[in-house]
């Protein structure tokens, strides 16, 4: 859906569900994952529908994802960091050691 304008100059690597994705310093996680063609960042807690970022400015909260073990973080507001581990979020955020319905 999205392609880089010019070269990406990726100097970092982030991991989504274990898959390595090249990242550029200063970009948001949302931009990085969209460039990599990721099809959804999370599923909704109610119907399990897939979601991708909608507003990119922090209003809609559809870009929620698990970042380094912390769930429900806004990917459109968070910058990439080298070695960051992301997980597609299924339904509500998990709290370490606990599962919600």
């Amino acid at each position: 859906m999205f392609a880089p304008i010019g070269s990406t100059e990726a100097t970092m690597t982030i991991y989504l569900d274990g898959r390595a994705i090249p990242a550029r310093a200063g970009e948001t996680i949302a931009a990085c994952l969209l460039r990599a063609g990721v099809g959804h960042f999370r599923t909704t807690p109610v119907s399990g529908a897939r979601r991708l970022p909608y507003c990119m400015i922090g209003h809609c909260f559809d870009c929620l994802i698990e970042i380094d073990g912390v769930g429900s973080r806004q990917a459109c507001l968070s910058e990439v960091e080298d070695g960051m581990r992301l997980h597609t979020q299924d339904g509500p955020a998990a709290i370490a050691g606990m599962e919600f319905q």
Binding site: E27, P53, Y54
Partner: peptide
């Protein structure tokens, strides 16, 4: 309007400015 692949114009502009991305397809 909740389907992946629906986005606002502002979102696409943000992806251009901050993400250096352009839409394709």
């Amino acid at each position: 309007w909740t389907l992946p692949g629906v986005m606002t114009a502002g979102a696409v502009q943000t992806l251009m400015k901050a993400g250096r991305l352009k839409p394709e397809g």
